[in-house]
């Protein structure tokens, strides 16, 4: 029979003991969740297996609490844990794209410093690899983006679209000051002629 991914119990010493399957709840997510609770409770982690298959979290409230409050604390912890598992998964999925963005930004600044040719060949191969990964992701969201773009274009291309500009912020500099500057110049020229 398969064991549950999560088991909880409250012992006689008013400690919450949660056993988690590390295949479903990664250790990094458990660390982050435990860290978020160290102001409310004392937390201790233990594990079973090599590599770890089960993580045992012991939560002991810092102040005396009744059973209802203990249950609330346990539920809060489990909700926070789910939140952190999701964050961890998203961070893991987007890792290559994040690295690609940082790499591209660095390349922009390095162009000015004349880097070696070897650097560019390495970067090209990395770019190709990452592009193929990002293309797969783009295809998934392509339809959604197209719909959004169509809606945006409709808004921009609306001929009846007007907006108020009481302070004249949208007036270009040339229109605003060029006429006055021309007047000043012509006055100076006239004075010189006289």
């Amino acid at each position: 029979m398969r064991k549950a991914a999560l088991e909880t119990k409250i012992d006689k010493q008013n400690e919450i003991i949660i056993t988690l399957d590390s295949a479903i709840y990664p250790l990094e997510a458990i660390y982050n969740t435990a860290y978020n609770f160290i102001d409310q409770a004392y937390l201790f982690l233990d594990g079973k297996g090599e590599p770890i298959k089960e993580v045992i979290v012991t939560i002991k409230p810092k102040i005396n609490t009744d059973k209802k409050e203990l249950l609330e604390l346990k539920q809060e912890f489990l909700n926070e844990l789910l939140d952190n598992v999701l964050r961890y998964q998203i961070a893991k999925e987007n890792k290559t794209i994040r690295e690609f963005i940082v790499g591209t930004a660095l390349l922009g600044s390095l162009n000015k410093l004349n880097p070696s040719e070897e650097f560019f060949t390495d970067l090209e191969s990395l770019t190709e690899e990452l592009t193929s990964v990002s293309q797969n992701k783009e295809e998934d969201g392509e339809e959604l983006l197209e719909n959004e773009e169509e809606e945006e274009n409709e808004e921009v291309l609306d001929e009846n679209f007007t907006f108020e500009d009481p302070l004249g912020i949208a007036v270009p500099w040339e229109e605003k000051f060029q006429a006055q500057e021309n007047k000043d110049n012509s006055k100076k020229n006239n004075k010189k002629k006289k």
Partner: peptide
């Protein structure tokens, strides 16, 4: 002991 456990946990993070 409990405070030490929490401190080690925070250090890991």
């Amino acid at each position: 002991k409990d405070e030490f456990n929490n401190y080690v946990l925070a250090k890991i993070k």
